[in-house]
């Protein structure tokens, strides 16, 4: 049984969509179940995903030049790898600006820092670049840009040539 099938078997109702091609497996899951699925991936001996390879995000605003409209805006993508079993799995979580909980401006997903320490800096980068908050992160502050930076630079509605007030010239 591949890791994807195992996840499907256990969390069938939380899975929105799956994709598999020659051992390259992806599961799109509901945001609320992210932590539970991740814990399952890490703690099950046959899966043993002990390495969080990457955690990043995608902004689907103006996707394909605006021709494709998705009903969500951001997707948080996590790549897992098991050093012991040499297999991989990709988890995706769809979050939206609009459905941000308790009136906050930023979408929020659960932090994986309690399971993989390496999630710390990845999540700070995603917060810095996309403005997605991670619930339970111990130190969620900008990692690449300076503190005075306004906005989140890799959001598609951030003007690519916008100048920040700290250093000129202004535009």
């Amino acid at each position: 049984m591949t890791p994807l099938e195992k996840v499907q078997e256990k969390f069938g109702k939380d899975i929105v969509e799956t994709h598999a091609f020659r051992g390259d497996e992806t599961a799109v899951i509901r945001p609320a179940s992210l932590l539970a699925v991740a814990k399952f991936l890490k703690d099950t001996p046959e899966l043993d995903f002990n390495y969080l390879m990457d955690l990043t995000a995608v902004d689907y605003l103006f996707f394909a030049g605006g021709r494709i409209q998705k009903e969500f805006r951001f997707e948080v993508v996590c790549h897992f790898y098991s050093i012991k079993h040499n297999h991989r799995l990709r988890l995706k979580v769809q979050v939206d600006d609009r459905e941000a909980p308790d009136g906050r401006k930023h979408p929020e997903v659960d932090s994986l820092t309690s399971l993989w320490a390496s999630a710390d800096w990845y999540e700070r980068e995603v917060w810095d670049m996309y403005g997605i908050r991670f619930k339970g992160h111990p130190n969620l502050k900008r990692i690449l840009m300076y503190e005075e930076f306004v906005g989140h630079a890799l959001r598609k509605d951030y003007p690519f040539d916008k100048r920040q007030p700290l250093i000129g010239p202004q535009n």
């Binding site: 690449l144 840009m145 630079a153 951030y158 690519f160 916008k162 100048r163 920040q164 000129g168």
Partner: peptide, 13 residues
């Protein structure tokens, strides 16, 4: 690099 991270000429500093 006309982008968010790059100083547009060091003569601005």
């Amino acid at each position: 690099y006309d982008n968010y991270s790059t100083v547009q000429g060091i003569d601005t500093i």
